[in-house]
């Protein structure tokens, strides 16, 4: 039941600095924990987050075991033209999720 919460302003003026906020559902299991019987709990984290705007990569982050569950990633960008933000999260065990949001720039 993975799901993402995205907050992108629907409208902006050309040249405005806008904040993009993303929240992805993920347990971010570190790989350093053991069960009560001593077996290692295998690592299961998101390893990479990418944001593209109209096909061009504008933000990328690598994620590591110390990052908390349900990673909340926010960043700023400049509104240049109307278009679509595409978000992608990739992780262990074949984890792959995408989301998108549109913006109108006037």
């Amino acid at each position: 039941m993975a799901s993402a919460l995205i907050n992108v302003p629907a409208k902006a003026k050309r040249g405005d600095i806008i904040e993009i906020k993303t929240l992805m559902s993920h347990i971010m299991e570190t790989g350093y924990r053991h069960t009560t019987t001593g077996e290692a709990v295998p690592r299961n984290i998101i390893t990479s987050f990418t944001c593209r705007f109209n096909g061009n990569e504008i933000f990328r982050a690598d994620l590591f075991p110390a990052i908390a569950a349900n990673p909340f990633i926010t960043f700023f960008t400049t509104a240049t033209e109307s278009g679509k933000f595409e978000f992608e999260w990739i992780g262990d065990k074949g984890f792959s999720e995408t989301a998108s949001a549109s913006i109108t720039v006037e």
Binding site: L5, I6, K21, L23, S25, F72
Partner: peptide, 20 residues
């Protein structure tokens, strides 16, 4: 601030699942 904003509140991930 995390609690106040629906897109920053991780609890909303469960609310979305619950809606489904």
């Amino acid at each position: 601030a995390m609690q106040d904003e629906d897109t920053a509140n991780p609890g909303m991930l469960w609310v979305l699942d619950g809606e489904a």
